[in-house]
Amino acid sequence: MREYKLVVLGSGGVGKSALTVQFVQGIFVEKYDPTIEDSYRKNVCEFISLQCELIRLLIVCLQEQFTAMRDLYMKNGQGFALVYSITAQSTFNDLQDLREQILRVKDTEDVPMILVGNKCDLEDERVVGKEQGQNFARQWSNCAFLESSAKSKINVNEIFYDLVRQINRKTPVEKKRAKKKSNCILL
């Protein structure tokens, strides 16, 4: 079974855990309970390839201020969801640094990544416009962008499926098989 290591990052209180719990368990957690680090695992059917292949998603939510752990998971993670809250400008501004750090740790521009504007159900409290998010994503070498709501279950699954798709595009499954075959021909 193929495994995908996804990391959800963002400032405190933007709804990283809420998104992940909604995706993994289908529940909206109303209570605020700050996470230092939590891991989740979910097996899903991959619809992208022709066959319905079972894949396993390992998802880690990280509070942004614990830098030691952030580095570790940045190194090991394959796909990154950078989450901000559309109701707080500062959470949006924080993401630039995070992205730069990921690129630095990964030492490449091409990292499977998605920019997520969470809490889009709170339209009345919106501070960060949708265009702002889109522009930001465009600057990030056309990174994927979604506005989501863990509470109203908008675009929750899409975040994680999109990351899986990006990872597949970057490291196709066939590549691995081809490598194995080529090992035999080496003689």
């Binding site: 290591k5 695992r41 390992l58 090991n76």
Partner: peptide, 11 residues
């Protein structure tokens, strides 16, 4: 699930 809930699941 039990294993993965341990914080050190990945490493």
């Amino acid at each position: 699930v039990q294993i993965c809930m341990q914080s050190r699941s990945w490493p």
